[in-house]
Each structure stands twice: as C-alpha cells, then as structure tokens.
C-alpha cells in the first residue's frame, strides 16, 4: 500500500520536471565528484542482486536527482525495498527506507588537479535509520577516470532502532572511455562493520568489472563484484545495474 503514494509522487514529479541536462554514471558502487548542472533532473532505478550461501537478495531503489546549483545535487530516495529468498525459512519482501542525500562539489576532476566533493545521506524506514557521510575524490586524465570514496555510516536497525552498527567503507574505481557513449572499468569495495561501534567484524573486500553506456537521454551502468576475501556466511557475489533517464 505504501508503494502507491510513492509511485504517484514519482509520476507527478517526473511530469513536472523541466528540460535539463544529465550526468550519467561511469561507476555503479563508487560515487563520482561531478554534480548535475543547475536545473538538471534525472530519474534513476537501481537493482542489486546479492548472492550468498544462505540467501538470494534483490534490492531496489528509485531515485530522483536534482541539480540545485552547478555544485550542489539533491537526491530523493523515493523508495528502497528488497526481496529475499532464504535457503531456510520463508521468503520476505520488505519496504525498507526513503531518504535524502546532498552532494556538494568543491573542485572539478578534469580542470583542477583533484576533484573533491562531500556526500551526506539520511535514510528512514520502519526498521532502519541511517546517517552516512562520504568524502569523494576523483581525477580524470584523458580517457581515464579514477575515483575514491571514503565512507562512514551509522545505522540503527530493528523495530525500536536498538541494533546499532557502524560501517567504514573504502571504495575505488577506474574507468576507461572507449567512446563517448561507452566505458569499461573496475571497482573495489572494502567494508568493515562495527557492531555497537565496538566489535569489529571481518574485513570484506569485493572487486570486479563495470561497464557503462550512455545515449541521448538515457544511460546505464552495470557492475559485478566478487568477494576477494574468504569470509564464510557473507556475500559471494553482488551485481548492480542502474538505469537513468534525464528530463
């Protein structure tokens, strides 16, 4: 039922948006430093498949991005939901969160020696509240693009938000542009969780290739990451596709 008002909001949102320019992604897990130009509006649909021994999980996100100024981008995460097929026990479909993020760009990755931006996010749902900050760094050299994201996240999960988790992530990406509409690259994700901000979990590392395609007003990026560490019970593999359309 919750989905209906959200769908309506999305549709009305889309029909109200002015004609504007996009900023297609070259990475699926890493955020780049560039923001949309002022007045830009883009709708993005994300889908992530997470495979582990115990379960298959499919996560979905619908997002609207707005260029507030040439250096500030606001994103509205309209709806994050997931479907889980458990090896033992029943399958579950849960609506998780909605939220907001704000990227502020300080310097340009092509024109300046180093592109720098900050990212702040908040997500709220019936069983999850999360705050996240990222430092985004990027350098574009010729057809190459290199990105790094340092991520710090605080999550409160459960019915009464009493399961507290801290997460530190380091994400890096490299992308080579084969033609203006096509690029290929790779991404590496390092993650460590701290239950109650004290007990450090295992270091997890995932790595794999990405591929991005863009045409006039549509673009898509796909990345598959394999677990490079050898931690049992965690994801073996994850695949993310993001499709975008600009208005």
């Amino acid at each position: 039922m919750k989905l209906i008002p959200l769908c309506l909001a999305t549709i009305t949102g889309i029909s109200l948006i002015p004609d504007a320019v996009a900023h297609p992604r070259r990475f699926a897990y890493s955020y780049d430093v560039m923001t949309m130009p002022k007045g830009g509006v883009e709708f993005e649909q994300w889908a992530t498949w997470k495979h582990s021994d115990q379960r298959e999980r499919f996560e979905f996100r619908s997002e609207l991005e707005f260029g507030l100024t040439d250096h500030d981008q606001l994103s509205i995460y309209l709806s994050d939901w997931r479907h889980t097929e458990n090896e033992i026990g029943p399958d579950e479909t849960e609506w998780r969160t909605a939220g907001l993020s704000w990227v502020h760009n300080f310097t340009d990755p092509t024109a300046d020696p180093l592109g720098v931006a900050t990212y702040l996010e908040t997500l709220v749902g019936p069983e999850k509240f999360a705050l996240e900050g990222k430092l985004l760094l990027q350098k574009n050299i010729g057809s190459w693009s290199f990105v790094y994201n340092g991520v710090l996240e605080a999550e409160w999960e459960g019915d009464s938000y009493d399961e507290e988790v801290g997460v530190i992530e380091n994400i890096a990406g490299i992308s080579y542009q084969i033609s203006p509409s096509f690029s290929v690259g790779a991404e590496v994700l390092h993650e460590i969780e701290f239950e109650n901000w004290s007990d450090a979990g295992d270091h997890m590392i995932y790595a794999g290739p990405n591929i991005a395609f863009r045409a006039k007003s549509v673009s898509t990026v796909l990345a598959g990451l394999w677990q490079a560490t050898d931690v049992a019970g965690e994801l073996d593999f994850q695949l993310r596709v993001i499709g975008a359309i600009d208005f």
């Binding site: 130009p37 340009d108 203006p180």
Partner: peptide
C-alpha cells in the same frame, strides 16, 4: 575553455 573542461565532461571524457 572552462565550459569545455567542466560542463562538456559531465557525460564523457574531454575530447
């Protein structure tokens, strides 16, 4: 030149 290096690189590398 500024636009060429900044806005023109929102979608692809600087050509």
């Amino acid at each position: 030149r500024r636009l060429y290096l900044t806005t023109c690189t929102k979608c692809h590398s600087a050509e």
